[in-house]
Computed example of a mutant assay.
Amino acid sequence: MKKRSLLLITVVFLLSACGKSAALVPAVTPTAMGQEHAGHSGHGDAAAGDGVQAVFKLASSEQAKANQDTPVTIQILDKDGKSIENFDLNHEKKMHLIVVNKDLSFFKHIHPEYKGSGLFTITTLFPAGGNYRLFADIIPSGKGNVVKSNSLTVQGDTPATIELQPDGKLTKTVDGTEVTLAMDHLMAGMDINLAYTFKDAVTQAPVKNLQPYLGAVGHVVILDANTVQYLHVHPTDEKTTGPEAKFMTKFPKSGIYKIWGEFQRDGKVLIVPFVVKVP
């Protein structure tokens, strides 16, 4: 497996000409609004995603509703509107789809099924009403990493928005595993090391039995509070099993960010969220 020491994506959101925010459109509409792209620095030209389009659609003409299965299709096209046929595996999958809600209290990492001719499909469930953002992470063959995103408004009861607040302590316990995150020289625009340390929550013994998750010891997804800056980071040593997992990235701008670390132990995927303020 090809080792990836740094995977950095910055998504700059584009508004439609009328100035309205992007929205996922139903299948009966021929085009989707609010498509964005970004390259992954560290994998060639940061503009490698230019010329790739993504059309996000609901599989029915009805609006998405909370707590109901929602089929979504994502059609990947070239600059001329023709289907892109071939995609490289990116950590065992042809597409990683990250779904978050507006205040980042909800996070889901799923993998749409590839149907051929550039078409990916997924059926997923949104736990509450409100605004969501979908990020599709792909590698069209012969191109660099590409991220396309779109918005979706889900009908249903919408909980009050919770303002994102930096964590006072970067230690959390998830499914019996105590996880601590340490960072050096936290500052925008500088390379930064993210070091996760794992202990058994009961015995405090170092955890050395982390299992591969999607071909690596773990994955880290980072979004800023406005869901404008998006980073997907892979470990510097993919094959380690603990008690440490290290990553390297760069926060593009100052602000508040939420960091989700994904790891696997005893057959369970551990999703460990932290919120930090980057000077």
Rank of each mutant, 00 (worst) to 15 (best):
S151K: 03
N193Q: 11
K246H: 10
K172G: 02
L15N: 14
H91M: 13
E178R: 07
M248T: 03
G144H: 12
G261E: 09
G144S: 10
N101H: 00
T73A: 05
L119M: 09
L77Q: 14
L7R: 13
L77M: 15
F56G: 08
L125G: 02
D167K: 07
R133A: 07
F198E: 08
T73R: 05
P212Q: 14
F126H: 00
S254Y: 04
D200W: 06
V269C: 04
S149L: 11
H43K: 07
V228D: 15
I256L: 05
K148G: 14
D45T: 15
H96F: 14
G144C: 13
V207A: 12
G261N: 08
M95N: 05
T241I: 08
V100A: 07
F247P: 02
L6R: 12
I259G: 06
K277G: 14
L104P: 00
L214W: 04
V72M: 01
T31Y: 07
P159E: 09
Y257W: 05
A128Q: 07
K208T: 15
D200S: 05
T171L: 05
D266P: 09
V221S: 12
I222M: 10
T197N: 06
T240E: 00
N67E: 01
L14F: 03
L194Y: 06
S151H: 06
K115I: 02
S41M: 15
A195W: 02
R265Y: 04
I76R: 15
P243I: 09
L170F: 09
I9A: 12
V228P: 07
E85N: 05
H219I: 10
F106Y: 02
K268G: 10
T29S: 09
T227E: 09
Y196E: 05
Q165N: 02
H37Q: 05
V276S: 08
P206C: 05
K268L: 11
M33I: 04
S117W: 01
K3I: 15
A38P: 05
K20D: 09
P26I: 12
T124D: 15
K2Y: 01
Q63F: 13
P166K: 04
Y114F: 00
V11C: 11
V269W: 04
A64G: 03
H40V: 06
A59T: 09
N90D: 15
A17N: 06
L214G: 08
E36V: 11
T180D: 10
